[in-house]
Design a protein around this nucleic acid. Structure first.
Length: 795
DNA sequence: TCCGAGCCACTTTTT
DNA sequence: GTGGCTCGGA
């Protein structure tokens, strides 16, 4: 059978052609075209409906297809009604895509899959029904990380904890990690509590939880934690939920944290029909609490579990697969899978050594343009980096060339200040006790309620254990402040109560418009006249538009709090730049993997903080990166790298040495290695206790003395000679630099302050400042940016 | 209340 | 090298 790399076995063979023995159970055989075209393992996974099932789905093995088909199978065979299925994913995107696929396959029969979503959204739905048991009212607000930190800051301040020594951000991280492990304040033991503020951590955690309750708020971690508390303390409620869910399915099981695991286990004990899908080799979220152990332990946790391995890869060429498999083999404690493919031929994985980051970006851009010249698309190319700072060099290069690209990730719509402000207003209308929202907007726009007035009110409210709104409204707290502040505060309160009344009758977008107008927020932005203010107003308009599909304020707020992604219009043909983390689950014909150097990748910090565990997670990240490639993968490493502003010479990543030689082709760029003056030759710096055997071998050319230990095959990658040691910035001058090639734009002389200009990436704007060849430009859409004069032309 | 100097820290990211 | 934050002065 010919394998199409795009969609595994979409060429649905007519069921007549399939031997009877391979068809589904007789009663569904006729009506189950969806089973056709699955390979035997996929089919096995789809049809194993009863009891615990672990599907080990290797990269590119058709995991999503199996999951969706399994859902379809459950529904089509009548084994379950849509509302009896609990299907959990990690991201909204994954949930949405799978739902769409199921809907596409089943049509209206799939309606009612209401328990299909992220852990958090499902936990939220459950919590809304029982929240009074943990001291919340059903209108409770879900705080995002930002609000969480602000609240913690207040708690620390009130407890007189020195912010300098014990930053709120750090404590927020600690609390998060406790919640990830389902530890309530009482269950935090003394040892863990020592780690912060001289052993006061547990006490502070408790105070934070109390504050949340007073404000009728919870954070993300609470959604699951409260669920678990309720389930554990109220067996009747747990029983009820167990009864509802006949079949449970979990995607990306290797990413579950302890709290999610406990939550699942509580629910799964009703039916035992729990199917988890995952890949231990793709566990890359240990740093945010994921426990690979959950998947490694599954068979012990759920005795009698059926294990299905999906090892046939439909995505990559044999060389790419061989490289990735060889690499990941260096990890210990794997469940073990051997990926294979029928796809033959293909190119070896390219490894390229370059002089510096700029050269790296230039080579990548050249390869992309070659690709394009061969009739391929930009959008087939992806650059996957370890950390986002690596993106800049590529962006700069691409802007210079006018090569279209898109950065995935980065600051999101809902995190913009104006959007958060608007939400704060609406949150306060909906939920008066939300002090964080209150503090955000009480003096924004200015109405004279400054820092000191707010403080008076806060003290007053804290003393009575009520929220700011309550304190001001019902406890005479407004009398605490005088003069302008009092007038302002009273206006604020009357505005709010008026909007609250209107909120019950008006459609949401109209309400939002009224709030934004009458609060003076729009007026404030209009008066600002800064380049950003117009784009902020545009964003608010976009926000109001986005509200049209919601019929209630509470529904909308819940949505934005849990679904922080807004599908931005996808571009037509652009190179995609993203982090390796963001690339999980995606695939591209051509993948670039730059920055494969010790310290950068594996990340020094990861190894420092988490030792061998950290290193193995980095290796899995490398594995994820390689397995994104369908046709071609290009790994790059640089001899010199500017890290935190300092030039350092760096060694190629150990991961390069770990890729079996047979699948690698070393490409050396002429002029970089070996052709430089002998004066600069010196011993390569060996840092971090790691000695790159491959590199030493290459550079010393004394073969057996430097044979790698551990019995692995000696790799013979050749990159020419040793890179010269960089002596300060001077050494860099010799390196061919991308900057010297002339960009296509008018000369810098033609641009004056106030001139209207066009920039390939940021569009139209006006020049505000000129410093040498750097221009500060107020762009109509993108706000104010500093750019090089070469990149803009007069408009 | 706003702005500049000085200081620090600096992955990955979803909900 | 840079951006974010705090603090002090105008």
């Amino acid at each position: 059978m010919t394998v199409s790399p795009t969609s595994p076995a979409t060429s649905a063979a007519p069921s007549a052609g399939i031997p009877v023995s391979q068809r589904a159970a007789p009663r569904v055989a006729i009506s189950a075209p969806y089973l056709a075209g699955l390979n035997p393992e996929q089919k096995e996974a789809v049809e194993a409906l009863d009891g615990p099932v672990l599907v080990l789905a290797g990269a590119g093995s058709g995991k999503t297809r199996v999951l969706t088909t399994r859902l379809v199978h459950l529904l089509a065979t009548g084994r379950a009604k849509p509302w009896q299925i609990l299907a959990v994913t990690f991201t909204n995107k994954a949930a949405r895509e799978m739902k769409e696929r199921v809907a596409h396959m089943l049509g209206p029969a799939s309606e009612g899959l209401q328990w299909f979503g992220t852990f958090h959204s499902i936990a939220n739905q459950i919590l809304r029904r029982h929240c009074e048991l943990v001291g919340l009212r059903s209108s409770f607000t879900i705080l995002d990380t930002d609000d969480q930190i602000r609240l913690i800051k207040q708690v620390l301040e009130a407890a007189r904890v020195d912010e300098k020594r014990w930053p709120a951000r750090l404590f927020a991280g600690i609390v998060d990690s406790w919640k990830n492990r389902a530890l309530s304040p009482r269950r935090v033991d003394a040892h863990m509590a020592k780690s912060f503020a001289d052993g006061r951590a547990a006490e502070l955690y408790q105070t934070y939880q109390d504050r949340l309750k007073t404000l009728n708020c919870c954070d993300f971690g609470d959604l699951l934690l409260h669920n678990i508390t309720i389930f554990q303390q109220h067996p009747d409620i747990l029983e009820d939920w167990r009864g509802r869910f006949r079949f449970l399915m979990v995607d990306e099981y290797q990413d579950t944290n302890t709290a999610q695991y406990l939550w699942l286990r509580l629910l799964a004990q009703g039916t035992k029909n729990l199917c988890v899908v995952g890949d231990d080799d793709q566990s890359i979220y240990g740093w945010r609490g994921a426990e690979v152990d959950n998947i490694l332990r599954f068979e012990r946790d759920f005795p009698g579990a059926k294990v299905v391995r999906l090892e046939r890869n439909y995505r990559s060429t044999a060389h790419i697969l061989g490289a990735a498999s060889g690499l990941i083999a260096a990890n210990s404690g794997r469940l073990g899978k051997t990926l294979w493919t029928e796809a033959e031929g293909g190119e070896k994985v390219e490894v390229r050594g370059v002089w510096d980051g700029e050269t790296e970006a230039r080579q990548v851009s050249e390869l992309i343009e070659d690709w394009r010249r061969n009739g391929r698309k930009y959008s087939e190319c992806a650059i996957l980096v370890r950390a986002s700072w690596q993106m800049r060099a590529f962006e700069e290069r691409f802007i210079q060339l006018g090569l279209p690209y898109r950065v995935i990730g980065g600051p999101r719509f809902f995190e913009r200040a104006e959007i958060r402000d608007a939400h704060a207003w609406l949150r306060l209308v909906h939920q008066p006790d939300d002090d964080l929202a209150f503090e955000r907007v009480v003096n924004n726009p200015r109405r004279g309620v400054g820092e000191s007035s707010l403080q008076k009110l806060q003290i007053f409210a804290r003393a009575r254990g009520v929220s700011l709104c309550q304190a001001a409204d019902f406890h005479g707290g407004a009398d605490e402040v005088r003069g302008v502040a009092r007038t302002g505060l009273n206006r604020f309160l009357t505005d709010l109560s008026r909007w609250r009344k209107q909120a019950t009758s008006l459609p949401l977008p109209e309400l939002a418009e009224i709030v934004l107008e009458e609060s003076g927020y729009v007026e404030m932005l209009q008066a600002e006249k800064t380049p950003q203010s117009q784009s902020r107003l545009d964003n608010l308009k976009e926000l109001v538009e986005a509200m049209r599909s919601f019929d209630s304020l509470s529904g909308y707020l819940e949505h934005v709090q849990l679904v922080m992604d807004l599908d931005r219009p996808g571009a037509d043909d652009e190179v995609e730049i993203m982090t390796l983390h963001a690339a999980k689950g995606l695939e591209f014909p051509l993948v670039f993997l730059p920055g494969w150097e010790e310290q950068v990748f594996p990340s020094q910090r990861s190894v420092d903080e988490n030792g061998i565990k950290g290193l193995e997670e980095e290796r899995r990240l490398a594995y994820v990166g390689l397995t994104r490639a369908r046709e071609r993968a290009v790994i790059l490493f640089s001899a010199n790298r500017q890290i935190y502003g300092r030039w350092q010479n760096v060694l190629p990543s150990r991961f390069i040495d770990e890729i079996p030689e047979a699948h690698v082709e070393a490409v050396s760029e002429t002029g970089f290695f070996g052709q430089r003056g002998p004066a600069t030759i010196a011993e390569p710096a060996v840092t971090g206790g790691y000695d790159s055997p491959g590199w030493r071998r290459l550079t010393e050319n004394r073969g057996q003395d430097f044979a790698p230990s551990g019995g692995r095959t000696t790799n013979g990658h050749t990159f020419g000679g040793r890179p010269p040691i960089l002596e300060g910035r001077a050494g860099r001058v010799e390196a061919p630099s991308g900057k010297s090639t002339g960009p296509k734009s008018t000369g810098p002389g033609g641009i004056k302050i106030g001139a209207r200009v066009f920039h390939i990436k940021f569009g139209y704007g006006r020049v505000r400042e000129i410093e040498g060849d750097k221009l500060t430009i107020a762009f109509d859409k993108a706000g104010e940016k500093k750019v090089l004069a070469n990149f803009v032309e007069a408009a």
